[in-house]
Write a protein that binds this DNA or RNA. Sequence first.
DNA 1: GTCTATATAGAGATAGAC
DNA 2: GTCTATCTCTATATAGAC
Lengths: 216, 216
Amino acid sequence: MKAKNVREKLLDSAQMLISKNGYSAVSMRAIAQAAGANVGSLTYHFGSKANLLREIYLLHTGPMNARRMELLGEALRIDDLDARLVAILRAYVLPAFSMSENGVGGGAEFTRMRAVLTAEGNKDASTIIADTFDETSRSFLRAISGCIPGASLEGLIWCSQFLLGSLYYALINPERVTRLSDGKVDGANRDVAVEQLVQSSFASFKNLTSKEDVSP
Amino acid sequence: MKAKNVREKLLDSAQMLISKNGYSAVSMRAIAQAAGANVGSLTYHFGSKANLLREIYLLHTGPMNARRMELLGEALRIDDLDARLVAILRAYVLPAFSMSENGVGGGAEFTRMRAVLTAEGNKDASTIIADTFDETSRSFLRAISGCIPGASLEGLIWCSQFLLGSLYYALINPERVTRLSDGKVDGANRDVAVEQLVQSSFASFKNLTSKEDVSP
DNA sequence: GTCTATATAGAGATAGAC
DNA sequence: GTCTATCTCTATATAGAC
């Protein structure tokens, strides 16, 4: 835990506030205040609010996709198709929920921020988000497809869409889990969330297996 | 398609704009302009932006939950557990995707707006959203539970969380489906989305069936 | 019931002192 | 590199004409 300079503190505060309240609702003043800095320093370091957002993305996208691809590579070495599929799904989900040691490469807060930005459909954000993650998604789609003989493209695409939606919502609204279970299930427990998500989407994907193709 | 008065037009425009861009990003001016009305008329009819949002909710929540509960009642009359579960899931999903004839009672745009508001975590919104839908969710949870012998509460809660997340994301980001499939799958086709979502979550829920309890 | 005009506050961004 | 001060624009909300 080394001391952070103002620039890093500003990036942290921005990510934290935007992931919680959305991009439009968070003012540069609020970001500066949360970082214990001044408004002027924001424009000095980043020039504009849109560019501040871009810098946050640049900090995470590369490392996060690298982690995903590395875990995917390991998963693809598994022979058993079911075990491989589970490993692939975990490779996709894990980096979205937890960061690497150096504090970049994904994590729940960054993912939650992405979820909020996607929902807002913000112009500043969409140009940045655009296809940053699509290449990785395609690699995972191919890998998943290889585990499910006879699955239709339509089914695969929709299931992967539902996987991402489930992932986002688990981070956006964990309170609902706790509330709906009368406190018996903790929505904020991310290890549990990851496992439940992996199991749930595994079942969905497996369900796509061509029904005619059940020869042993 | 009867002629709409200014008040109704303002409600429509507000819902449309907020569902697309988020609550904070949409100004009262933009809402008034989209409705072909004046800013002053907004405060006259609704008093404040927060209350405008409340009125949109009041217009939909009652009828939408009524439709869901009616469809749920029909589903519960089905004897076969698998067929019943599918019907229950469809009863939950359908009203979120399409309105009743009178133009209220849910629909994709209203649901999308709810998704965006949840993501933004907006204060004005959260007090309104709060527990408006929780009672319905609880009824569905009980009904689903009755179809899956031996399912754990934890599994049921998480699967229902993933269902809602999938539903929201299907409406928030349909472009991703189209883009990821190179145009081969149309993310905007809501009939298909509903069926894919029902099938996918059916498989997830069924997967919760206690493995020990497979006596015929 | 709907408009124009306006009050007040806050936004993003800039210039220049230190 | 970080601050203060300020410019300009836009926000919500209000008051009063029609």
